[in-house]
Design a protein around this nucleic acid. Structure first.
Lengths: 344, 344
DNA sequence: CTGTTAGCGCATTCAA
DNA sequence: TTGAATGCGCTAACAG
């Protein structure tokens, strides 16, 4: 106790004139308590404003009913929204959350977080950090040692892992096919960083669609961005310079699309008549861009919720000694058509 | 234990050939351990991959070294960014975090969260939910009973409370004075919901500046928004209809400013030549709006960090039996000038 | 410098 | 239906 001491189960027991066990039973909604005693104990509990010490409880029970979540910056729409979904679902299922944030994937920080999670006896771990293939190499080793169920959000499948992801490849396809259907023929792409799984997949989707659409190599140029608006601005200029015939661009997220829109304005290029643009994410502002942005919506909240459901299954199965089949659960994104890709 | 049992301090003690006490001393970096034994114990600890059970530790120590944070939706820039600041600073000071999210201020949810915080023996509470005056009425009662240090982010002062806030009034003034300096004379405002403290303060700042600038009542019209872009769109149209002479608008956040920009385009009104616009927040996208948005930047990350520093002081003071003076710590926002308010 | 003893607050045996 | 004893894993107070 930090000086002042709190009400414990003993106090409740004493003033209610029963044993601590009985109080414990009432707390845990056991059936084997007579209605009268239960009522009496309840009264005392509320009167004394008693609330059980969760440390004592968890220590005694041997587990924490807590999920460890490793997330990514709170200020990006997609990653924040995933966390919101996780929080909400965890709440619904009665899990507490221990949240750790990472900026990049630093090995040492992962060690510290894992150590903390073990100390907290988390029942499961959700990895919600966008990360590249290299990172997953050393992560796999670390996680293998931990012996706690873990599920990954948005990483490439890997036979033995439990993964929940948005079908980013499909998203890239949808975006690109839409542009083709609108009569654009020469479709460039501004990707995210190449090492990100999401980025690769969106790129793959674009590539497939572009090939299927019969676009020439010259007409399927690519430039790498960094997810932020300035890189969209630069990317747009680069693509246009490389091929003046270019008449459409798939930007791998909405921020880069926003940068591209600004570049176009500054260059006197008209969107969508000269060049069509499609983004990815459908951030709330996208409908108010100029022109309003056609984009691929991914429901990241649902993604987070799915992950929690899945880890819950894993935990329960584990308690029963079962080992569920690993694999990938995919969430389908869909296209939201606005003016940036529809000629007047 | 959930079936499988973990390595405990006993195991370490046994295989290292010392008492659990010595292991404990090593764990807590006590000085009174000989270098040899310390080294030996350390080795065993890493070899056995031992990590202390935090529940046992907290139970024994009597406190949790944890901060309870009540936050607001993860998908809004300002509120998320505050949380990011809190997370980062808490990490730096060695605090763990227990995060609860609220959408509105529902009394029953507050009860549940507080109950949970008490169960977790949090050392301090940070209230980071934008809320109206009415809410603070019943909140005060609840918090008074809890007997845990608490600090509020962005609420009106109240003699006896500890508050950390952005000077929203100053922000409103800065925005409005800037417009006056740029030669605009008839400045309307799109506010946030009237019951929000932030909204009120920005409104007050605007009002002062408008009065000081000698604007007539007709030229200082106000319309209420809801922080989202659509309400900015509607607000813009309303203001323009009410007074065709209106030549500037202060939108109380960037999303509403974005909506206003779109409305202007659709009405054929030119920004900034016909009407100047200033927003509030400086979200990352603001520089890429069309035209780029002049806005008031508030460093919400720093705000969060300040709150953690303050609660830390409170906790320490409390341990020493001192009661620091309550009051308001203000953070100053500043103006970021872009094209939306500067005539060509 | 190290070990022994005791207890943190609760839940889980067992008896009664 | 209830109570008494025991232990979860760790730290604090005291010895030595």
């Amino acid at each position: 106790m930090t000086a002042r001491s709190r009400v414990t189960i003993k106090d409740v027991a004493k003033t209610a004139g029963v044993s601590t066990q009985t109080v414990s039973r009432v707390l845990n909604n056991r059936l084997d308590v007579s209605p009268q005693t239960r009522a009496r104990v309840q009264q005392v509990i509320t009167r004394l404003a008693y609330s059980p010490n969760i440390f004592a409880r968890n220590l005694s029970r041997g587990h924490s009913n807590t999920l460890g979540v490793i997330g990514y910056g709170l200020i990006y729409f997609g990653t924040s929204s995933v966390l919101a979904g996780i929080e909400s679902k965890a709440n619904e299922l009665g899990f507490s959350l221990t949240l750790s944030l990472m900026n990049g994937v630093e090995s040492s920080k992962v060690d510290r977080i894992l150590y903390d999670f073990i100390s907290r006896r988390v029942d499961g771990i959700i990895w919600a950090v966008p990360s590249d293939i290299d990172a997953f190499g050393f992560l796999a080793d670390k996680f293998a040692k931990v012996d706690i169920p873990i599920i990954y959000i948005n990483k490439g499948t890997n036979d033995s892992d439990y993964v929940t992801a948005v079908d980013n490849r499909l998203g890239g396809q949808l975006a690109t096919e839409h542009l083709l259907q609108q009569g654009y023929h020469c479709i460039g792409i501004i990707t995210g960083p190449h090492r990100w799984w999401e980025s690769q997949e969106r790129l793959n989707g674009w590539q497939e669609a572009v090939k299927a659409g019969g676009c020439s190599d010259k007409c399927s140029l690519m430039v790498e961005g960094d997810w932020n608006a300035p890189s969209g601005d630069i990317g747009f200029r680069t693509l246009v310079n490389q091929n003046p015939k270019l008449d459409a661009i798939f930007a791998s997220n909405d921020q880069m699309a926003l940068g591209a829109l600004q570049a176009a304005r500054n260059l006197g290029i008209h969107i969508p008549d000269d060049i069509g643009i499609v983004g990815f994410d459908d951030i709330p502002e996208a409908a108010y861009f100029y022109p309003p942005l056609t984009t691929v919506r991914q429901d990241t909240r649902v993604l987070g919720a799915m992950a929690v459901d899945r880890i819950n299954e894993l935990i329960q199965a584990r308690d029963e000694g079962i080992l569920p089949n690993p694999g990938l659960s995919m969430l389908e994104p869909h296209l939201v058509v606005r003016k940036s890709s529809v000629k007047a």
